[in-house]
């Protein structure tokens, strides 16, 4: 087997998931200015739902649809029940509320599903595709194709469509957006629904290749935040951010070993953060 090819396949699969998580985080952030630390819970809620429903003997497709619906409803509920009545609070308080929501969700998932990990059958079954000395399962190919397509579609939706522009206007200046007749509450509801749907989609695609338990959410939030930060919180660059993170992790593991993964990834993140703040540090775009 060729470790380099395998690293590319592995990086693409992870990158697809990170792109979905990043774009969901960015959509929610761009409409509310709040970094949602409960975003990874959409992944956990979706994955655990699919695992539980599939465990009842229901078809894997129905289990997947249930996962998407529940993840979307969860994200909408966090926004409408926890965030909406508290929008007047400072952003730092709202971020802490999302962290509390993440821990609360963990507890609820543990009670609902127990502590043992869950999984469910692959949607795309068949022998792995072998190419250039590596192998990728059909589910992995679907993950890469659907993950990146969905992330690109959402990016285009935000940038190109009237509704997307309304969402971005809500993010840029909610007061001005309201004066222009945009229903900002509705925009935030739509943004959280999209974010939840993407988190659920990430779970439906990834969990059959691995497993999930009640505590998977915060780890996924962290990966999503890193990918979103690499993208500069820009919806157009979310795919690039996810892909960069996935491939970086894979190549660091291949060439330097798993022990080097976190130090290298966080060093890259610090480097990107320093680069992105250059305008602030140098006082203008000319020198940067």
């Amino acid at each position: 087997m060729n470790p380099v090819t395998q690293a590319i396949y592995s990086g693409l699969m992870a990158g697809g998931v990170y792109a979905l998580l990043a774009i969901g985080l960015i959509v929610a952030f761009r409409t509310s200015r709040v970094l949602n630390l409960a975003h990874g819970e959409t992944f956990a809620v979706g994955g655990v739902t699919a695992g539980l429903v599939a465990g009842m003997g229901v078809s894997k497709f129905i289990a997947s649809i249930a996962a998407l619906v529940v993840a979307m409803l969860y994200a909408v509920a966090v926004d409408q029940i926890l965030m909406k009545p508290r929008r007047h609070l400072p952003i730092s308080s709202l971020i802490l509320i999302t962290l509390a929501a993440a821990f609360l969700t963990r507890g609820v998932l543990m009670v609902a599903a127990g502590v043992d990990p869950l999984s469910f059958p692959r949607l795309f079954v068949g022998p792995p595709i072998r190419f250039a000395g590596g192998a990728i399962p059909l589910q992995g190919v679907a993950l890469v194709a659907i993950g990146f397509t969905a992330a690109i579609c959402v990016s285009l939706f935000l940038v190109r469509t009237p509704l997307g522009r309304k969402l971005r206007a809500t993010a840029e200046n909610p007061d001005a957006a309201e004066l222009l007749g945009i229903d900002t509450d509705r925009m935030r509801l739509i943004a959280s629904a999209i974010a939840g749907l993407l988190g659920g989609l990430a779970a439906v695609l990834l969990v059959p290749l691995t497993s999930i338990d009640y505590q998977a959410g915060l780890g996924m939030t962290l990966r999503g935040i890193i990918a979103a930060a690499l993208a500069g919180m820009s919806p157009a660059l979310a795919v690039v951010g996810g892909l960069s993170l996935g491939l970086s992790e894979a190549f660091v593991t291949t060439y330097f070993g798993a022990l080097a993964q976190d130090p290298v990834i966080f060093a890259i993140l610090i480097g990107v953060a320093v680069w992105q703040t250059r305008k602030i540090r140098f006082g203008g775009s000319q020198r940067a």
């Binding site: 592995s10 992870a14 999984s119 290749l209 593991t253 798993a258």
Partner: peptide
């Protein structure tokens, strides 16, 4: 890690007859 294919590709060379995963806990399913 959600994928162990890099590690397995690294250790599953032609003359290797068996692979041992000493990984314990939920992630070992990966």
């Amino acid at each position: 890690a959600t994928d162990a294919s890099i590690q397995l590709a690294k250790v599953a060379q032609a003359d290797v007859k068996v692979i041992y995963s000493s990984y314990s806990g939920a992630g070992a399913a990966s």
